[in-house]
Nucleic acid binder design. Structure first.
Lengths: 122, 122
DNA sequence: TGTCATGTGTACTATATAGTACACAATTTA
DNA sequence: TAAATTGTGTACTATATAGTACACATGACA
């Protein structure tokens, strides 16, 4: 198993939808499009990169449908979840400082902070 | 000294620009507008809330001009700095988790984490 | 008192965002 | 083999974003 890293939003969606489709016919472009509430032609164009990724709401529906992480799909689409933005906007200086501090920290440091906060080690 | 909390972006800008203008005539709507690179009528409308706050770039220029914190002004404008968004988008799951954990934490916990990270206590 | 600067009303404008609607050829399925 | 389903090309559309351009009345000032 290998990972393709350099992948657009559309390519990623197509790949994962096709994988599900191989096991279940309900994952055709048309049927997925209907379930997430867009026109089939639009989803087709999104997957081929013919148009920009859709709105946050549609990306969330897609994440749900394909069992993918919404924050990751949003990131691939060049977006940041609106609930995170709201959290930051309520205390902009505190969060701006912290996030810029963490910019260059390794993954496991960030992971550890999140764990410590969750476990109440504060 | 007291703080006015319920204030729109435009009201805040007007108040602080007017304060500077009281000491220095170069802080008129027209002159500030020229220095940040917009039409005077546009800045006037922004300050009165007649139009939405301007782009991130103009808000930064305004922050510079009025000696205000750009992250705070952006937050008042309903935005999050694009450099922070980029940091989050590079590791969406790590940052999403951490930020949601911190949502309900008091200011000084967040402050302390930022300080600890800066001081290398990790 | 004339001119210079000031703030603002009105009327546009260009580009981006987020899609829809329909037709059609190819493939699948019953 | 007829009917249904599929993916996609073409042509639009509505709303938001981010402003400009100009005119005008008012007030400051030299």
């Amino acid at each position: 198993m290998y990972y393709i890293v350099h992948m657009t939003f559309g390519e990623y969606i197509r790949e994962h939808r096709e994988a599900l489709k191989a096991e279940d016919r309900r994952f055709s472009v048309r049927q997925v499009a209907q379930r997430i509430g867009v026109e089939p032609a639009y989803l087709s164009k999104i997957e081929r990169g013919d148009v920009a990724p859709p709105s946050e709401a549609k990306i969330r529906a897609l994440a749900d449908e394909l069992n993918e992480d919404a924050d990751m799909l949003l990131a691939m689409a060049g977006k940041v979840s609106s609930d995170l933005q709201e959290i930051i906007r309520k205390r902009p200086q505190l969060f701006a400082d912290l996030i810029r501090q963490l910019k260059t920290m390794p993954d496991n440091s960030i992971l550890r902070i999140a764990r410590d906060v969750r476990d109440g080690d504060w």
